[in-house]
Nucleic acid binder design. Structure first.
Lengths: 145, 145
DNA sequence: ATCAAAATGAAAATCATTATCAAGCGAAAG
DNA sequence: CTTTCGCTTGATAATGATTTTCATTTTGAT
């Protein structure tokens, strides 16, 4: 079954912290895993509510925070005022292209850039934990190529 | 006098759009130019109010938007829920280190990274307008080195 | 001077997110 | 069993930054 490893990780994470593995938490994790790309708390709230309309949105926010702590989700911010979440486990680190014309995002990665970032951090005696690179512009389709 | 070029740019920008060059707009621009580093709308509002306590904060928000459109200011977002603004005109593009321990930020730039970003964009047929790179970690001081 | 358009300040509204709180529930202890 | 205690929850209020509204003022061109 899909997402089995992630479910195990989450269960272990909860157990290690003395937290409970509730139906709401499993449902929210399940819906989060069930969709690719980036989802906002509100969007996730709506799809979760389709399966259980009693779930409150505060719980969705709370669980998203837990998923981030558990290393299963990662926060991204495309500057539109809403935080989005993407899968973290089993996904290589990547950066984002954001098309300012159609809003589409594309995941990209360049190992050489990553290497240079580490070198840059070292030069400034800065201990690098993580980074965010957002590349804004227009995609090929929007330019009509 | 300092900031003369910027004032001219702003005046021209306003004229080109048929907007008026008001005392509030000049005052806010002046205070914005008068401080280095990153300032939030609220911080700017307070220093502006010291010189003219009748200015409202809505006006500060409005003028900051104009300054961005005029190419004099640039929005930065360190992920703490507050947008900040930095000087754009006459300042090289740069990226940011953000110390997650003390909150300090450091401006850095690496031409090699910029070059690679452009190559990456080209590879994906993406027309790059601008980018934001945030490097999170801990600074030397916070690590007690 | 006149008049329409633009600008302003105060206050209300919005939007995403967080905090509060009373009620629910589950596991372990008695 | 059943009591207890703490973790969870949903509803709701609160928050904080930003935006909008709106009545009023200012401006610049006629």
């Amino acid at each position: 079954m899909k997402g089995q490893t992630e479910r195990k990780i989450f269960a272990d994470f909860l157990a290690a912290r003395g937290l409970r593995d509730t139906s709401q938490r499993e449902l929210i994790l399940d819906e989060f895993l069930g969709r690719e790309s980036h989802i906002s708390a509100e969007e996730l709230y709506y799809v979760v509510k389709k399966r259980d309309r009693t779930v409150g949105q505060a719980t969705v926010y709370r669980v998203l925070k837990l998923l981030c702590d558990a290393g299963l989700a990662r926060e991204v911010d495309f500057g539109d005022g809403t935080r989005r979440y993407e899968h973290e486990f089993g996904h290589e680190h990547h950066d984002h292209f954001i098309c300012t014309s159609c809003g589409k995002t594309m995941e990209v990665v360049d190992p050489a850039i990553e290497t240079l970032q580490n070198a840059l951090a070292e030069k400034y005696r800065f201990s690098l934990a993580n980074h965010e690179l957002y590349l804004y512009g227009t995609c090929r389709e929007c330019r009509g190529e």
